[in-house]
Nucleic acid binder design. Structure first.
Lengths: 334, 334
DNA sequence: CTGTTAGCGCATTCAC
DNA sequence: GTGAATGCGCTAACAG
């Protein structure tokens, strides 16, 4: 049986109120002498505070919950590091919940386990919540914010990159290297994020006087498999000279499939990835990418939770990182 | 202010005890009629149970805490999926804590946030705990079990692969393909896990009548960088024909560095990885590996926590998965 | 079947 | 400075 403040009160010969005070460092509410006794007693009893009980009475928690989907793309860890860094700065703790991959039931479990106990707020990393679970989240009254995902109609708080810019920048980078026939692979069109990227991509092409053929855009769920499928659809004799992978994983799928099709990267086909996680530097050739600032998203998420009033949607910066998967096309006319 | 059972008791015109009973589905302790009223009241109030309060009185929790280190290698997600699967099967919830990378302070934070509140047990995924934190863990009285890590002297509960076999099997696989000059890259010698792998490796060579030269074994921390460093140490003109990467990441580091050195894989150098995560199939050529059963570890971990008495250390199976990074050597004499 | 009582471990009035 | 008393939201006897 774990020791309680009652035990240490008895051992130290003081009241539980006093014990509570010294343990909470409510300075100026106790003498040095009693502090000594209490500390000593606590130590010998191996006392561990029951924070749950404390939170019950104070009605406030110091833990932030981060709900992540176990998606195949892996930027979550960068966001989490940002969250941890900022949280610790304010003496907050963070717990992480896995919500499965578009699995409503798992989402519900994850949400319930945090809603049912005291947390100061919930961060949802790239999880696209089922409608019923969104309701659950909202009626919990807890502060929350979505990270690395955006919404169109609904007015939900989120922090992410400017996905239109992401699509635009990736495409423009390819155009700048002389490419004119550019594919977009593995992007989702069911959600705002994907739609924006498509729009940015299309606009960049349009600005260059190019109209994307319908089959240039291969939809998918950002996964490795989606990238492979897209490349298979393009085929070995594709007229494309470059493709934008909707995520790092998708880009790798495209690249490996291209190789299986007999196309060398970047000699025969240039590839640019979106996300810019460490995966880009692991593969050969390393992938040029439009990199998102995931760490920053984590930090901003915590700040959002701490802020009294809900900020409007916030945008984190992106940047082009040149690596080896894009080749300058000769004979370009730009 | 969130609704409590008191509110719903008043609204339904019953006592809080009754409310508690129907909400806990203590069937046969209430009539259908009252159940209706209570359910209705709960619904209209948007009631959310405060599990923390409930756990305070029942003195038992239904959540398992998984502490992971944010190491560069990424098998954690597989273990976590195993944990979740088994946990949900028994109506347990799981929360995940990041403990940083060999950062004692972060470890302490992670441990404290779970020790200070009710959890039914703690699983530590490949985290090598600082001594003071191990003390913390032990005096918490909570059941715990280490996963994917083993110990020598101390009698700590753990579940992992047979690391001696891992080293042996990887090396033997290479020997079977005719290799005789085989390196081991990125392995740690400070901990039990690494030492066992080295022993298995050495024994396999010995059985083949081979003595490893000192520089065949390049120590490291299983990271990508460790793999690179090891390969740089071997050099472009190495006499080795194959190397065992101590982890997937280390193997990839070896492979990429080999390429930079002008060595083709597997033509000039064969590589086998230890771990067998999805990374192995992402890179080109894909990496042959000795794969661990991480999912199984997660399941076994939960079972261990649920078991009354601490089981002895448990071993999960491993298997050789052939991919493309190992080449059969001509002129072998086996 | 249901209400009353008590108490989980802790923080916080309010007196002294 | 310190103690006694109260209650956070909930469950568990114990009566009826």
């Amino acid at each position: 049986m774990a020791a309680t403040i009652k035990d240490i009160a008895k051992l130290a010969g003081v009241s539980t109120a006093t014990v509570s005070r010294v343990l909470a460092h409510k300075t100026a509410f106790f003498s040095a002498a009693t502090a000594q006794k209490v500390q000593a007693a606590a130590a010998t009893l191996g006392y561990q505070k029951n924070t749950a009980a404390a939170e019950l009475v104070t009605r406030q928690s110091h833990v932030i919950a981060a709900v992540v989907n176990s998606t195949k793309t892996n930027f979550a860890s960068q966001i989490i590091e940002g969250i941890q860094a900022e949280a610790h700065r304010h003496d907050l703790n963070v717990i992480i919940l896995y919500a499965g991959d578009a699995d409503a039931e798992q989402q519900r479990r994850a949400l319930m386990t945090v809603i049912e106990r005291p947390v100061m707020g919930i961060l949802l990393l790239s999880v696209d919540l089922a409608a019923e679970n969104l309701t659950l989240l909202q009626q919990s009254q807890l502060p929350y914010c979505f990270l690395s995902i955006s919404f169109d109609g609904e007015r939900l708080p989120y922090i992410t990159s400017d996905d239109w810019q992401v699509g635009y920048l990736a495409t423009q980078a390819l155009l700048d290297q002389g490419h004119r026939r550019i594919g977009l692979a593995g992007v989702d069109s069911d959600f705002h994020t994907g739609r924006l990227r498509v729009l940015g991509y299309t606009q960049a092409l349009k600005n260059a006087g190019i109209t994307a053929a319908p089959d240039w855009i291969q939809l998918g769920n950002y996964s490795y498999a989606a990238g492979q499928t897209a490349m298979r659809a393009y085929g070995a004799k594709t007229s494309l000279t470059a493709v934008v992978g909707a995520s790092d994983m998708a880009a790798i799928g495209v690249m490996n499939q291209a190789r299986d099709l007999g196309l060398a990267v970047p000699t025969d086909l240039s590839i640019i990835a979106i996300d810019g996680t460490e995966l880009c530097s692991l593969v050969q050739p390393s992938l040029t990418s439009v990199s998102q600032n995931f760490y920053e998203m984590g930090i901003a998420g915590v700040q959002q939770l701490r802020a009294k009033e809900a900020l409007p949607q916030k945008i984190t910066p992106i940047q082009l990182v040149n690596r080896q998967s894009v080749r300058r096309l000769n004979g370009d006319r730009k």
